[in-house]
Measured scan of single mutants.
Amino acid sequence: ATNIVSKVKWYNSTKNFGFIEQDNGGKDVFVHKSAVDAAGLHSLEEGQDVIFDLEEKQGKAYAVNLRIK
């Protein structure tokens, strides 16, 4: 899926990962520091509106092509 609009559930800049809620009630989506860095960001804030693409690797959903709404 591409261009999903949602909100950051939480992000831990010390552990370099977090999760984004899915508005459709699906499972929370993992977001890694590499996606945050690629977006030119230093961190994410809880409740922040984001747009991302969903990529599945080894049966897990990852946020990629992250951008701020």
Rank of each mutant, 00 (worst) to 15 (best):
V29L: 06
D23K: 14
E46R: 15
H32I: 03
G59T: 04
H42E: 12
D23E: 14
V64Q: 05
K15E: 05
K69V: 14
A39S: 10
S43I: 11
V29Y: 12
N12Y: 05
A1D: 09
A1T: 13
L44V: 04
N3V: 06
Q48L: 10
Q58W: 14
V8P: 00
F19C: 04
A63F: 02
H32T: 05
I4D: 04
L54S: 03
S6P: 02
N3S: 10
E46H: 14
E21R: 14
S34N: 11
E46G: 14
Q58R: 12
V31H: 02
I4C: 10
K9T: 03
Y62P: 04
A1W: 11
K15D: 04
V29S: 03
E56C: 14
K69T: 13
D53E: 05
T2D: 08
I68T: 11
D37M: 15
A38H: 08
T14P: 06
S6Y: 06
F17L: 03
G26E: 10
Q48R: 05
E55F: 14
Y62Q: 12
G18R: 00
I20V: 06
F17Q: 02
G18L: 03
K57I: 11
I51Y: 07
S43W: 13
V5Y: 11
K57T: 10
E21K: 14
A63E: 04
L54I: 15
H32Q: 04
I20A: 02
T2A: 10
D28S: 06
Q48G: 04
A63C: 04
F17I: 04
D28M: 07
I4N: 07
A63P: 03
I20M: 08
V36W: 03
N3P: 07
G25I: 08
V31W: 02
K9V: 05
S34V: 09
D37V: 15
S13L: 10
F52M: 04
L54K: 07
F52D: 00
D53M: 04
D49I: 15
K27L: 09
R67D: 04
E55D: 07
D53Y: 04
K7W: 07
V29A: 05
I4L: 11
R67A: 05
S34Q: 10
E21A: 14
H32R: 04
N65H: 08
V5I: 12
R67K: 09
Y62D: 04
A38W: 07
Q58V: 08
N24H: 12
G40Y: 06
A39Q: 03
E55V: 15
G59V: 00
E21M: 15
Q22K: 12
D49A: 13
T2F: 13
D49V: 15
V31G: 01
A39T: 06
G40W: 05
K15G: 05
K9M: 03
A35M: 07
I51S: 06
F17D: 01
N3T: 08
W10P: 00
E55T: 09
N3W: 05
G59I: 01
D37N: 14
E21T: 14
V64Y: 05
A1Q: 13
E45K: 14
E46Y: 11
K15L: 15
L54Y: 07
W10D: 01
S43N: 12
E56V: 15
G25K: 09
V36Y: 02
F19W: 11
D37L: 15
Q58S: 12
L66F: 00
K27A: 11
S13M: 11
K9Y: 03
D53A: 03
L44R: 02
V64E: 05
V29K: 02
D49C: 15
N12D: 12
Y11N: 02
L66E: 02
G18D: 00
V50W: 01
N3M: 07
I20Q: 00
K57V: 11
A38R: 11
N65T: 02
A61K: 14
F52E: 01
Q48N: 06
D37P: 02
E45C: 14
N65K: 06
Q48Y: 06
K9R: 10
T2N: 11
A61F: 15
V64P: 03
N24G: 13
N24K: 12
A1F: 12
T14E: 12
D53C: 04
V8L: 03
I20H: 01
I68F: 10
L44I: 08
S43V: 11
H42Q: 12
D23R: 15
N16D: 05
D28H: 06
F17K: 01
R67W: 04
N16M: 11
D28N: 08
F17W: 07
H32S: 07
E55S: 09
R67P: 03
V5R: 12
S6K: 04
Y11C: 03
A39E: 01
K57C: 13
A39W: 03
F30P: 01
A1L: 13
E21L: 15
F17V: 02
N16Q: 13
N65S: 04
E46S: 15
K60G: 07
L54V: 13
V64M: 06
K33I: 07
E21C: 15
E56N: 11
D53F: 03
S43P: 08
A35N: 04
V50S: 01
H32M: 05
V50C: 03
Q48H: 06
V29N: 02
V31L: 07
W10H: 03
N3I: 06
I68H: 06
L54N: 02
L66N: 00
A63D: 04
N65G: 03
S13K: 14
N65D: 03
N12R: 09
A39N: 04
F52Y: 12
W10F: 09
N24E: 10
Q48M: 13
E55H: 11
I51R: 05
A1C: 13
H42P: 12
D23T: 15
L41Y: 10
V5E: 11
I51N: 03
G18T: 02
D49N: 11
Y11T: 00
N12W: 08
K60M: 10
A35F: 05
F30A: 02
E45Y: 15
I20E: 02
A61T: 14
Q58F: 14
E45H: 15
K7Q: 06
I4H: 07
K15I: 11
N24D: 11
G18A: 02
V50Q: 01
D28C: 06
I51Q: 08
N3Y: 07
K7G: 02
F19L: 04
N65F: 03
V31A: 00
D53G: 02
V50H: 01
Q58N: 14
E56M: 14
K69R: 12
S13E: 11
D37C: 15
E46A: 15
V29I: 13
Q48E: 09
V36E: 01
Q58T: 08
A35W: 05
K60N: 08
S6T: 05
G18P: 01
G18I: 03
L41A: 08
I68Y: 07
Y62S: 09
K69I: 15
K60W: 10
K9I: 06
A61I: 15
I68P: 08
A39F: 03
Y62M: 10
S13W: 10
Y11V: 03
Y11M: 02
A61R: 15
E46F: 10
V36P: 00
V36R: 01
A63I: 04
K57S: 12
G47M: 05
V64N: 05
K60Q: 09
V5T: 12
H42K: 13
D37Q: 14
D28A: 06
A39V: 07
D49Y: 15
F19T: 01
S6I: 04
I68R: 06
A1R: 15
I4Y: 06
Q48W: 13
I20G: 01
N12H: 08
